[in-house]
Design a protein around this nucleic acid. Structure first.
Lengths: 128, 128
DNA sequence: CTTGTTCACGTACGCTTGTACGTGTAAGTT
DNA sequence: AACTTACACGTACAAGCGTACGTGAACAAG
């Protein structure tokens, strides 16, 4: 449970790509970026270095290419980030955020079905 | 639609108090803080000043007391903040966040009922 | 009027973040 | 071998952030 520093916005973006595209070189992460809104190669590199120095990634040299891999699970980082946001923006109550997401951002039909199930589950095993 | 700089975490906390406790002096915001995790008076003051310089608050001197009031609506800031988070952490898809909130943070019984209604509404007027 | 209290306001300071550039070198191309 | 890419790695640097301190003025209490 070594408590790692939290991620900045830019670092999060790179971390997400790293989670999604597994162990990867700087170039691979660089190219995994959506075409719009691309960071410079060197910027991606810096973020990966910073992720490593914060303990959120590991790296090894494979030949002359440095390959990074995530060291913390997405779920963990997401939990911490969201908890923090809920705390600061809503004083700790997460319902307003759920409400906001549903009202303002909409959910597609598949999501609606899934949501119904989630709620049923919640109600059934209404523990903790 | 003047595009104001986004808020830092500390600023958000103060902004939330300002939204909740209406136009208020530094001291009032300072005292509105939950007893644990209190910022110093001067720190609150700095955040209010910064909120103003970023265009998120206004202030006037009432006698010798400076009174701050929010200039941007909570809803707007929340939308921008959450949109940004969803973008960076989930690549723009908000469903994973909803799922996370429900699974990891739980919703109280009242919330469950409300959620059901929200979903029904969504399904009915399934536009946009 | 003297002393303590409460503010506003300017300032500070080290750390983090966004966003790279430059240099040296290994590998690929002609 | 000479030239061109592609990398790793060190470095940079201004703006933003967290967290106040200090000073001087206004007010309140004695």
């Amino acid at each position: 449970m070594v408590d790692r520093p939290s991620l900045s916005k830019g670092e999060m973006e790179v971390a997400r790509l790293l989670w999604e595209f597994g162990p990867a070189s700087v170039r691979q992460i660089f190219e995994a970026q959506p075409d719009v809104r691309k960071m410079d190669f060197a910027t991606v590199q810096t973020y990966l270095r910073r992720l490593e120095s914060k303990g959120h990634a590991n790296s090894t040299l494979e030949g002359r290419i440095r390959v990074y891999s995530a060291r913390t699970k997405a779920r963990t980082v997401i939990r911490e980030t969201v908890d923090d946001l809920v705390q600061r923006l809503f004083g700790g109550d997460s319902m307003p955020l759920v409400r906001h997401l549903i009202e303002e951002r909409g959910i597609d039909p598949g999501g609606i079905a899934e949501l119904r199930e989630l709620i049923d589950q919640l109600e059934k095993g209404g523990d903790k």
